[in-house]
Structures are given as C-alpha cells and as structure tokens.
C-alpha cells in the first residue's frame, strides 16, 4: 500500500423516489379528503385544501421561526455544556456520581408539562421560562449519554493513556472527548428532536413570539391550515438541524470512513 486513499462523500439532504411517491400519495389523499369532507358532514375548515395550506405557508412570519430556532440552539448549547461538564465531574468522582445519579433519574422522570408549569410559577421572564424548561429536559439526556460513553471508553485505551502520564485535562482532551464524539452526535440528534417538541409546548404557554405561540393563535382562530403550515415549518426545521449535525459529524468522524 503505497498511499492511503481517503474517499470522502458529504451527506446531502436527499429525497429518494420512494419518499417523493409516499409524500405525493399523502398529498393526494389529503386533497381528496378536503373535497369529500363537506359531503361527509365534516366542517370544511377541519381538512383544508392544499391551496389553502399553501396560502397559509406564504403568510408565515420568518421572525417567529428565527426566534424559535434561536431558543432551541441556545438551549441545546447550554444543555450540552451543562451535561458535558457534569458528566466529566461525575466520571472523575464516584462520590459525586453516587449523590447526583438519583437526582438525574428523578429529573428525567418528571413530565415536560410539569416543568412548564413549574417554570410559569417560579419565573417571571418568558425567555427564562422557555430556556429553563429546555435545559432541564435536554441537559440530563446529554449528561447520561456522555457519562455512559465515557464509561464505555475501552479500559485498554485508558490504561495506555495513563501509562504516558497525562494531566487530567490532557486525559479528557486527548482521549475521552475524541472517544465519545460519536455518542455526542447521537445525543445531539436525539435532543434536537426533543427540543423542537418541547420548545413548541413551552411557547404555547405564555410566549408572545415563536412557532408555539403562532400555533396557539392558529388554534384560537380554528385555522387548521395555519396549524398545518406551522407544523410543516417545524418538521422542516428539525430535518434542517439534523442535516447540519450530520454534516459536522461526517466531517469530524471522517477517520471512520
């Protein structure tokens, strides 16, 4: 082997034929249902036509998308830092792990709705409430995933690294962090989906901006078309963020290809 080839293929957001066909079938069924609805005694607003939904999409306010996106990204970054730092501390100290582990389990068992109610009762600021709910829901997921990944770093590699006498910081930077990168990306993907769902619910309660708030307005106006349009935006946002993470993941983990 005179030289080693590195083949690199960047993942792109692709739409295979099957995906397009299934989406078209769904759209056709929906359109058909919207025409049949009045004949079946269903009010016309319940299943709006695709044209009506398209009109709703055109009225979407980008600022609400930006606000929700900013809330999700800021909260995910804060949750990640919180999870990573605490996981490193718990990995280093068995005592800390023994004390914190039950609390983390309890935090993870609390339903999202309860957190939202606590946030409304405890904090006056809307942004803080939403941030709190997102961090308290996503942070423990990052923590548990990261801690598990650290514990799964092969003993042989830890042993080898220690034999070269690294400092604690070097041990984490040169071994533990690179070793857990694949798990960190998986955790990000799970948390993006979780955060998009949680932020929507949190914005439904009390927020005056964001996609959740717009969904609440659409519900008050009995506008299924608007609800549908905002839902499409949410799903697109989720796919976009996941594609972004997948791209970074591919770049950082190209040694695996």
């Amino acid at each position: 082997m005179a030289h080693v080839e590195h083949r690199e293929s960047v993942p792109v957001l692709t739409f295979p034929r099957q995906t397009i066909v299934s989406l078209l079938v769904f759209a056709a069924c929906w359109e058909g249902m919207s025409h049949l609805a009045p004949l079946l005694g269903i009010p016309p607003f319940a299943i709006p036509s695709l044209l009506r939904i398209s009109k709703s999409i055109l009225t979407i306010t980008p600022i609400d998308i930006v606000v929700t996106l900013a809330r999700v990204i800021a909260a995910l970054i804060a949750s990640f830092i919180f999870g990573l730092v605490l996981a490193m501390a718990m990995y280093r100290s068995e005592t800390l792990d023994q004390y914190l582990h039950p609390m983390i389990r309890i935090l993870m068992a609390v339903p999202v709705v309860s957190w939202i109610l606590f946030a409304v009762l405890w904090f006056p600021g809307v942004e803080f409430r939403i941030g709190f709910v997102l961090v308290v829901v996503c942070g423990p997921v990052f923590l548990v995933d990261t801690l598990d990944a650290m514990r799964n770093v092969p003993r042989e590699l830890r042993h080898m690294m220690q034999s070269f006498r690294p400092t604690t910081v070097q041990f984490f930077l040169k071994l533990m962090l690179p070793a857990i990168v694949p798990t960190i990306f998986t955790s990000w993907k799970v948390n993006i989906s979780l955060a998009i769902r949680v932020v929507t619910i949190a914005e439904l309660v009390g927020a005056v901006t964001g996609i959740g708030h717009q969904l609440s307005v659409a519900q008050e106006l009995f506008s299924v078309a608007d609800v549908f349009a905002w839902t499409i935006v949410l799903v697109a946002l989720l796919f976009l963020l996941e594609a972004l993470v997948a791209r970074v993941e591919h770049r950082l983990l190209r040694w695996r290809s």
Partner: peptide, 12 residues
C-alpha cells in the same frame, strides 16, 4: 514508555 499486547492506538 510502554508497548502493550494489542497496539492500543487511538483509532481517530
């Protein structure tokens, strides 16, 4: 310095 049974290289 040490050499182990398995190479114990960092795969990344």
């Amino acid at each position: 310095a040490t050499v182990f049974q398995q190479d114990r290289l960092l795969p990344w």
